[in-house]
Structures are given as structure tokens and as C-alpha cells.
Computed example of a mutant assay.
Amino acid sequence: MKTEEVMSYYAHTKIEFNDMFTHRVPATINGMVHHSSTGCCSFVFPLSGQGYFTFDNVRYKLMPGMVLHINNTADIDMKPIGSEGCHYAVIYYDVEETVIAHDPFVISIDDYTTCQRAVEQMMKAFTTPGNISRVQTKAYFMQFISEMLVAHQRSKHVDREDAMSEALAFMRQYYQSGLTVTEVAERFNIERRRFAHLFERYTGINPSNYLIELRIQHAKELMRATDETIASIAEKVGYDDPFYFSRIFKKYTGKAPTAYRQCL
């Protein structure tokens, strides 16, 4: 959904805080965590870690710096990614009419910490008894929306050199989760081809190869330091398919993973 449409919606539509909760899902959980629809619109705000959030059979990969908006008919199914698990907040609100979007959409923000602080203050007020706390909760909810929209608007005009520097750090932090170039480009609100061009101009390497190099280097370190299976190592560096990992590893090192390990 276009930024201008989102801005106009929240500027002219009557909305009111309804409910919220935070949930911490460990990486070791089996299956999915299910949250039933409450009949309200909602925001899903990752506080730490990463996870897949599924609505109407469409899966969204979320991490800090991304906010997911859901309409008032959607159940939530969630599965954490990686070894950290996922800690997230779900914020429900009432609206006179659901005109913003029938499908979920993701809002990328550049100032994650400011929005997180608003969410934490909202949760603290919400869990404190008393009428003053109820008023404060509503105020923090509107502050959260304001901070989120300002951060989203600002992220669309961020200096490209700064964006590439941040993209490098972002990729180093999350490559083990199977991060793709498309997801990185979306995180920084840059069209994928444009992002690849800017990234290569800034770093001298295209982003796909950079992600592969990060994963291959980590895989080499794990082969030297552990006795883990090739399949386990593949998963830890961001590859779901160990056979595909083996092909990529051989392409970049000249040896299959098993042969490389035997030479150590």
C-alpha cells in the first residue's frame, strides 16, 4: 500500500485502541503458534528475533524494523526463525470502517528503537490498573502510530550511502535466517534492481554474492570447529536444502563440503 494512502487513512479515520499483548516464542517450539481473530484491525510489531507470520495462507517474514498491518478478519499463525526465537507485540484497534486494505501489508521503518519505546510504554500503561493508565495507553497508541509513520516516511528519503552501510550490517546480522536480497531491498524501501545497483556500486560486490560469501565463510568455520553434519551446518548458515548448499559450496570453493572437511 502506498505511503500517502496510509498517511491519509490515519489522518482522517476515527480509530481507537482496543487491546494488546506481547508473546515470546522460543526457537525450540514445535509447530505454529495460533492467535484467533478478535474482529479488530491489528499491528504486529517484532521486538526481537525473527518469525514467519501467516494470514490466509500468505506468509510474511518479519524482523525488527518491520511492522505488519492486518485487517479485522485474519487469524495469526506464527513460527520463529533461527536460534533466538521471536518476541513480538500484537496491538488491536477499532475503526469505524475498514478501508485501509483488505490484505495485510508491511511498513518498513528506519527508527525502530523509537517505535519500540512507544510499544513498551503502551504495554506498561495497559497492564497498570486505573483510569489514568487507560488514558495513557490511548495516548501511547497514537504516539506509536505517529512515530511509525514518521519513521516510514523518513526511511523513504534516507541517504543512499547510509542505507547501503545499514544494509551491510543488516545482512551480516540476519543472513543465517535465509535472508534474500528482495527482503533486504524491501526493508530499506528500495526497488530490488535499484538496490542491487547501489549495493554493488558501494561495496564492489552484488548483494546475492555477498550473502553467499557470508554463508560460505560461516560454513567453513563450523566445519573447522564442530562435528556437525553438513545438513545441520547448511541450516545454520541459511540454507533449507543441504543439496543446494553443497552445490553452492562447491561452486565457490572448488570442493564439496565433505571433501573440504576431509582436507582440514
Rank of each mutant, 00 (worst) to 15 (best):
V33G: 06
D19Y: 15
R247S: 13
C86E: 04
K2C: 04
H157Q: 15
F21D: 09
Y244V: 15
T3Q: 05
Y88E: 05
D94E: 14
V25P: 13
Q153A: 14
L222D: 13
F170N: 07
N71M: 02
D75H: 09
E16A: 09
E186S: 14
N30T: 15
T114Q: 09
S42Q: 07
A196S: 15
D94V: 10
I76Y: 01
P64T: 08
A256N: 04
A185Y: 00
M20D: 01
N18F: 11
D162T: 13
S108I: 05
E213L: 08
D94N: 13
N30Y: 14
S133P: 04
D111L: 02
E191N: 11
M164I: 04
G49M: 03
L179F: 04
V158W: 02
I109G: 04
N18E: 13
Y112P: 04
V106A: 01
M122Y: 02
S246H: 01
H35N: 14
Q50I: 15
Q262K: 13
D77V: 11
V90H: 00
D111V: 03
R117N: 12
R224Y: 07
V158N: 04
T98C: 00
Q217L: 08
H69M: 06
H152Q: 13
A118G: 01
T13Y: 00
Q153W: 01
G254W: 13
R201C: 04
H218R: 15
R247H: 07
K124C: 10
T180M: 02
A151V: 05
F45T: 07
T38V: 08
T182G: 12
Y210S: 06
E16D: 09
H87V: 10
V181I: 14
A259V: 14
H102Y: 11
M142K: 12
Q121T: 05
R134A: 07
C41Q: 08
K251A: 05
I29V: 14
I248Q: 07
Q136N: 13
L68K: 05
G204Y: 10
Q116S: 09
G31N: 08
I205G: 00
V58F: 01
Y202F: 12
A167C: 01
M63V: 15
P26G: 07
K14T: 15
E228S: 13
L264M: 09
R134K: 15
Y239D: 02
E16Y: 11
D103H: 10
Q153D: 12
G82H: 09
E96Q: 10
E161I: 09
K251F: 02
Y175S: 07
E161Q: 15
A219D: 07
L179G: 02
S208T: 15
T113I: 13
S232Q: 12
A125P: 08
F144A: 08
V90N: 04
P26M: 09
F55K: 10
G130L: 09
T3K: 05
T3N: 03
I216Q: 03
A259R: 12
V119C: 00
S42C: 12
L168P: 06
P80I: 09
G49H: 04
M223R: 02
P80Y: 02
E228M: 10
A151R: 02
K61C: 13
T253M: 01
M20R: 06
I230R: 00
E191V: 03
I109Y: 03
